[in-house]
């Protein structure tokens, strides 16, 4: 009998709680009219950033495409005249992308970054396949400092042998001095 009363009480409490909710203001944000400001680290549309010198950061090392769990990134690396490695084309299929951010984590040059912009819907699925021109942005994204070719140790227009950060002058292989 006691349990019956308790059950009835519990039921009544439940019904009362839901009833009370009827008179609360809905917490829903009405999305297309109200745009919420998303945190900078929100994972949405992917961009390719530039280094502080204004050159493409991406060196087409294939790490993002290797780590991508849905294989939505493809590219072809190539070499510029000054020896700089870059992506001759770079393609992200946003119809397949799951915005997991692993590419950003894998990127050794801070080139590929996820941004909070997420309104990329298209009716034609081919328009969700972004090429390098669509992905490139004219800023450094979240990492304002890093410039891979200044520390890499390979010869480019930026620095020759021994001119990168923390490098000694090249060894003179023809000297007799100890």
């Amino acid at each position: 009998m006691k349990s019956l009363v308790e059950a009835a009480k519990a039921l009544a409490e439940g019904f009362a709680t839901t009833f009370n909710h009827l008179f609360r203001r809905p917490v829903t944000e009405e999305y297309p009219e109200v745009h919420r400001v998303l945190p900078a680290r929100t994972r949405a549309r992917i961009v390719l950033t530039l280094d502080p010198d204004g050159e493409e950061r991406c060196v087409a090392c294939y790490l993002c495409s290797a780590v991508c769990p849905v294989s939505c990134i493809s590219m072809q690396s190539a070499e510029k005249e000054d020896g700089r490695r870059y992506a001759s084309w770079f393609r992200i299929n946003f119809a397949r992308c799951i915005y997991c951010g692993l590419c950003e984590e894998a990127c050794p040059t801070s080139a590929i970054q996820l941004t909070p912009y997420f309104e990329t819907c298209e009716r034609d699925i081919l328009r969700l396949v972004y090429e390098k021109e669509d992905l490139l942005v004219q800023h450094q994204g979240k990492d304002k400092e890093y410039n891979f070719y200044k520390v890499a140790g390979v010869v480019t227009r930026l620095a020759g042998k021994g001119e990168h950060a923390r490098e000694e002058k090249p060894v003179n292989v023809k000297t007799n001095l100890p």
Partner: peptide, 11 residues
């Protein structure tokens, strides 16, 4: 149901 769940429901 939406109001019970503090939502708007179809609008």
């Amino acid at each position: 149901l939406a109001r019970l769940q503090i939502r708007y429901g179809p609008n």
